[in-house]
Design a binder for these strands. Structure first.
Lengths: 106, 106
DNA sequence: CTCGAATATTCCTGTAAAGGAATATTCTAA
DNA sequence: TTAGAATATTCCTTTACAGGAATATTCGAG
């Protein structure tokens, strides 16, 4: 819909970054660990993390030398919301889901 | 997660294409109408539609001279599924949503 | 069978983005 | 205060992709 979603899609449209995001589901990680697990070089890892950060997908916490990158919830929530505009596409099961989401308690 | 999602993200990471997808929510359209409503030239519209088609986001039905482009449901369903892997990120409300989705009747 | 409408394709050019390599920065420990 | 670990940044080169312009294709009407 808007500019921010475009940035999120662009950030995720790259295999290494997609794998980073998947990796970070299990919790925050440092740059070195990410690079190692993804079998990429540290500078590339830093660059990709920067892109993810600028897209708001990831946030960083400094701990001395280390930087811990962690997933942010908001972009995923926004994708969820964006997707609701397309649920009517497939079938009426999701009309019920829409109702559920609308009435969902906090 | 996989290659197909990457292609979908890449296809949506472009403003004109994103607007096309949004436009097509209200139903199939021909290339000329799409180009006109998006204020882009016809060749660019055709090119973007081709990208969307190759990503599986859109399908085309030939009607004489005309080509009617329509949204496909599958990529949106897959995004939905992909997103469920991230719902745990924000809060436990969505644990209930997960239950709902799992037990959702066909 | 020719014309015009609708759409697709090709060619060209500019630009953005990715990876490699090297280097810069920042912090802790000693 | 210096060494080394962890991370970021810069520079360079290559490649992908977007838009413009022109042209090709395909179809129905007449």
């Amino acid at each position: 819909m808007d500019k921010e979603n475009i940035a999120v899609f662009a950030a995720l449209a790259e295999p290494s970054r997609m794998r980073m995001v998947s990796l970070l589901r299990s919790g925050p990680l440092g740059v070195g660990e990410i690079a190692e697990r993804l079998q990429i070089r540290q500078p590339q890892a830093s660059k990709h993390l920067k892109v993810l950060q600028q897209a708001g997908i990831v946030e960083v916490e400094a701990d001395a030398n280390r930087r811990h990158y962690r997933l942010r919830a908001e972009p995923f929530q926004e994708l969820e919301i964006w997707l609701t505009g397309y649920r009517e596409l497939w079938n009426e099961r999701f009309d019920r889901l829409d109702d559920y989401l609308k009435n969902m308690p906090d």
